[in-house]
Design a protein around this nucleic acid. Sequence first.
DNA 1: GGGTACCGACCGTCCGTACGGTCACGTCGT
DNA 2: ACGACGTGACCGTACGGACGGTCGGTACCC
Lengths: 244, 244
Amino acid sequence: MVARPLPPGGSTGPRRDSRRADILAAFTRAVAERGYDGTNFGDLALELGISKGTIVHHFGTKDRMLRELHEGYMRRRLAEVQVVWARLTGPAERLAAFVHLGVRYQVVDRTATVAFQREVLRFAAEPGMETSQSLRGEYRELVERVLAEGTAAGVFRPGDDRLRTLQLFGSVHWMWTWFDPAGPREVADVAASFVETFLAGVLVDRARAATLADRSGLVAQVVAEAVAAGRAEGLDGDAGHTPG
Amino acid sequence: MVARPLPPGGSTGPRRDSRRADILAAFTRAVAERGYDGTNFGDLALELGISKGTIVHHFGTKDRMLRELHEGYMRRRLAEVQVVWARLTGPAERLAAFVHLGVRYQVVDRTATVAFQREVLRFAAEPGMETSQSLRGEYRELVERVLAEGTAAGVFRPGDDRLRTLQLFGSVHWMWTWFDPAGPREVADVAASFVETFLAGVLVDRARAATLADRSGLVAQVVAEAVAAGRAEGLDGDAGHTPG
DNA sequence: GGGTACCGACCGTCCGTACGGTCACGTCGT
DNA sequence: ACGACGTGACCGTACGGACGGTCGGTACCC
């Protein structure tokens, strides 16, 4: 990620080429590694070989940058759900897919995931964050609705949908503190274990949990494809970050 | 929390009275509310009506204060487990107790819990944090061992103990981002739901989950007593903190 | 010539920490 | 009994660096 020699014409952006995207990517990486407070314009500029003023020119303020990161992240996640839902229609499959997805985020779009999860609450109450907050709410409601539908259909044991959703989110959001993509444990293994335990706790017919958890089963495959599709659309792959 | 008029003699401490404990309590509250980076000596001193220099005198540096917070917190948690284990011996009961405990921390010793969970990773890799880290490891191993014992005894379905432990920790650690002690949902309800779902996913005899989750059942009672015991020993009660 | 990307010097503020000093005590030798 | 001495709580100030953001300007393209 060194200063580029400004390639000729053929630009894809709205006007000219700009390092805007580079800056946001570097910011995301920095937040993932050092947190929001630990990230500063000076280091960013140095790393990108540009001036601090350029960053300000593109984003204005630091919190605006975080907001953009938040919103972009949630939009990508919601887009993925659309892809998955087109191919999986049963509540059990969809619920399992949410778990698979949540775990996979630790690998695909990883820096953004870590950055996002570290700083979800930052400015959450401040004005300007309404969009980001409502996108989060949308995602949560999707899961809640799946749980409600499954219960109504008699495939899930009755329970508090909201609490179950938050229980699930916690499991996967916390992963950034311990999961090491370079470590011996693969995401697929984690996903399989999480699905197996969580679904077995929710399903009426517990035997189905194993199928839904299968790392080469239908759900896992659909999820992998959905996630690969988003990636092909131009999202970063990014190198690892290793938590303590 | 205003400057005291220095009460007469009868001191209990090693020498004279000191505001050391007050400072750590205020620090904990600040970290819970604003995070480590958002906490500064100036505000703390102002709030306590003392000088910034006094804080330095007692703790030296900011990270040393955080370390003390970390270690104290984990020691209290480990002490509670001892109490619980003396009264609950079955793997299922003990596992359920860990869930009940994890959820309850959001209410008892709340500020310390939030402060701790917000900043678990801070300086985790730095030298000086080994003690805090090993205490965390101890706690994790206790849960893992319970899972292993339960599986060996045939009461738990086989699975990856480490991953299940981390799945559980995630659920409860994440609570600081959404649980509002002043809100309509009581901890006991959350605990019941979490135990019900998680234990139903792990137990061979799933019907037992309901009993273990019962908010007025044996496990819940023992946990409540253990936690109350710790509280009586002089830990703070502290007022609420409301996340976004 | 108007808009856009970018530069680089600069400013005001904040914050952790260092440091020198005061004061109330407890201790101990005499 | 009393004064010298040591100790630990606490104060006030000042420093030095970092950081977010401002601003006037240049180069380049439509």
